[in-house]
């Protein structure tokens, strides 16, 4: 992770197993408030400019429209109607208790986004958080 301004960051590129689709993922956490973090993935279309956001795992950074005064880890995703309408915004929000730190969110994200070789690039994360893997398939 690299510090830039008021936050820490990393980006990584992904592709589908048959190499036909490309994706871009990012990890961010706030320097002053580490609990304000985000781990997300965008789809990178081959035949048009720009990207399509797909998923973002957030920390408890403040309220949301579903819970104005409630500080809870939550996940943003996009629905098919928005994609069809060209609305590239992750408007679907679900609260979650699957993680409580950015490292746990990253592990959850690897599983949720079905990233098959994450350990090759993040070898130490499993050893730091062995308990997380108790219930994972």
């Amino acid at each position: 992770m690299k510090r830039e301004g008021g936050h820490w960051r990393n980006n990584f590129e992904l592709e589908s197993e048959n190499a036909s689709r490309r994706f871009r993922a990012f990890v961010r956490y706030n320097d002053a408030f580490n609990e304000n973090f985000s781990v997300g993935i965008d789809y990178v279309p081959a035949d048009e400019p720009g990207t399509v956001p797909l998923l973002r795992c957030n920390g408890p950074h403040g309220g949301t429209k579903i819970h104005e005064h409630h500080n809870q880890t939550h996940i943003h995703s996009i629905d098919a109607q928005d994609i069809n309408d060209g609305v590239k915004v992750l408007r679907v929000i679900e609260e979650t208790n699957k993680y409580s730190s950015w490292e746990e969110a990253l592990l959850y994200f690897f599983d949720r986004a079905n990233i098959s070789n994450a350990e090759e690039y993040f070898p130490t994360i499993k050893t730091k958080l062995p308990d997380i893997f108790k219930d994972l398939p």
């Binding site: 936050h7 961010r28 706030n30 304000n36 985000s38 997300g40």
Partner: peptide, 12 residues
């Protein structure tokens, strides 16, 4: 904003 705006902007 304690850096949250630029952090959010950097997602995309």
């Amino acid at each position: 904003d304690f850096g949250m705006s630029l952090m959010r902007l950097s997602y995309s």
